[in-house]
Amino acid sequence: MGLEDLSHNFITGNLETLVKWARRNSVWPATFGLACCAIEMMATGAANYDLARFGMEVFRASPRQADLMIVAGRLSQKMAPVLRQVYDQMMEPKWVISMGVCASSGGMFNNYALVQGVDQVVPVDIYVPGCPPGPQTLMHGIITLHELIRTGEIMQRRQSSGAGAGLTLEGAGR
């Protein structure tokens, strides 16, 4: 289900704003932790930083119900197919945050075992730098994602670049 089939007019315009608001305020992350960054990701969800403020404490174990995959940590060659599978199991609309340098670029481990950047496997919307990024950094990445959802920029970018695993948006999000 989605807004994709509707033509653009006043009602759908407002509806779209509402839906974007809802999507922004209810980004449920998948429980997908890989390495050190996963610890910091969990720390972000814990009492001192509290992702719940954004309605994000609902870490969904089932990818079917998750909206956001935070790739937290280094992605090995062995794990890459699994990551892709989890991504494919997620339902549209879905977003990916690449957390930490290992996920973003392979980081300091440029060797046989690691995938040099998860964007080779899944399309990434936000890159969060750091090794590991502190909770504040991750939170900044998440707020940036919220902003991009609100303005609809992510959809536009996917439309122009084709990234986003077959998500087609016709009519909406201009």
């Binding site: 289900m1 989605g2 807004l3 509402l18 839906v19 608001w21 809802a22 999507r23 305020n25 209810s26 309605g55 609902v58 079917r64 909206d67 339902m91 549209e92 609309p93």
Partner: peptide
């Protein structure tokens, strides 16, 4: 917000 988001999410 959760409800609206879920309503407009892809089904499977």
């Amino acid at each position: 917000a959760d409800g609206i988001k879920l309503f407009f999410k892809e089904d499977l």
